[in-house]
Design a protein around this nucleic acid. Structure first.
Lengths: 154, 154
DNA sequence: TAACATTAGTTGCATGTGCAACTAATCAAT
DNA sequence: ATTGATTAGTTGCACATGCAACTAATGTTA
């Protein structure tokens, strides 16, 4: 009885459900990328996306935008540079900064990931109305805000 | 115009919102555990939870329940064994199986994580009604089902 | 029973992650 | 201008992850 109650507490929390759903999504996302022969991880795809939206960002900005440690981002970029998806260019104004640019190969790969993502999103949202999506996203925004507001307090 | 439309497509998808929210949650979860001096990762906590619910599971079952590769789980267990949170006991009936048990230390640590999790969940769900939570969870269940049903088809 | 297949677990390899310590460049202040 | 603080990026370390190849034990079948 006691145990059941406690289990229910956990199960009725958003946290575990978010975690598990994301894990499953990541798994099928990875599978979809592999299946299309795209030599790319989810994380690298996110970086490509940010550069696609705003080419020439420096590593610091990219780390912030992708919510990553700068060291983690640096290593992501190294792998992407080896694959010729991006290139680092030291800024002339401030030699500490590396501006990061998409290469034509990077653009091409990102272009090829778009339909894969579209298809994956279609699958995952199959029976979910646009009203429901909007409501979920609105709540997720509030959750994010609750965390970031919490820190501001500390 | 074109770009904006495409950007909106991405932003109105559940995927990126789930991913980002989970990333933020994991970050604060990790921070909360550290702050309480709990020598434990989120992943190790999940394993403790499953063992708390069902002690003596073997590694295969644990891997399935936690949605992990068996190799990943094996390494998690090795670290948890070093910290004396769990112990492996070779099954007498089938010597291939390792039954995994919580140690008293493991039980104690899990007990101490519970209030941390409770507090974190309270923070993240601060302004979210129980009705909203239920609706979100129901939709996440459908998302999960959409993925797993998809695979069954392949 | 001997040969083959399956199963549980481990290990090598490559990926991604954050923290802390480091270098190099720039900024600030005396 | 020299000294000290800050900033961008890199690297060492420890952790988590999946796949593929491996071992050991069990099951199956001829």
């Amino acid at each position: 009885m006691h145990d059941e109650q406690h289990k229910l507490d956990f199960e009725s929390s958003l946290g575990p459900w978010l975690g598990k759903t994301t894990k499953i999504m990541d798994y099928y996302l990875h599978e979809a990328l592999q299946k299309q022969g795209l030599d790319l991880t989810k994380e690298q795809m996110i970086v490509l996306k940010k550069l696609h939206d705003n080419d020439g960002l420096n590593q610091n900005e990219l780390a912030f935008l992708t919510f990553r440690d700068k060291s983690s981002l640096a290593r992501l970029l190294s792998k992407m540079e080896r694959k010729d998806y991006i290139l680092r260019k030291q800024s002339a104004e401030d030699k500490r900064n590396n501006e990061v640019f998409l290469t034509p190969e990077g653009r091409e790969v990102f272009k090829r990931t778009k339909p894969v993502m579209k298809s994956l999103m279609r699958t995952m949202e199959k029976d979910i109305t646009s009203e429901e999506k909007k409501r979920v996203i609105e709540i997720l925004k509030r959750v994010q805000h609750n965390f970031t507001a919490e820190t501001a307090t500390l």
